[in-house]
């Protein structure tokens, strides 16, 4: 395994960990309803509204 492959795999592992971490955090913070395509911020939505 050459140096390029080692660096590439480290990047992949870091990306995978960051993706999983951000998904878990967003669930915990209630950000899961944000789609990212528009300005609807999920955090605001969940924090600020009560069940209707």
């Amino acid at each position: 395994m050459g140096w390029q492959e080692i660096v590439a795999l480290v990047i992949v592992a870091t990306a995978a960990i960051l993706l999983i971490r951000s998904e878990i955090l967003s669930r915990q913070n209630g950000k899961s309803v944000s789609c990212g395509n528009c300005s609807c911020t999920g955090a605001e939505t969940l924090k600020s509204t009560f069940d209707v």
Binding site: A16, G36, N37
Partner: peptide, 23 residues
């Protein structure tokens, strides 16, 4: 605002998924 959200998403989530998908 919306294009910034779109670009931010591409630079974070889509980038992460693309890297994992490459693997």
């Amino acid at each position: 605002d919306r294009s910034w959200q779109f670009v931010k998403r591409a630079g974070t989530f889509i980038l992460g998924v693309s890297i994992v998908l490459w693997f």
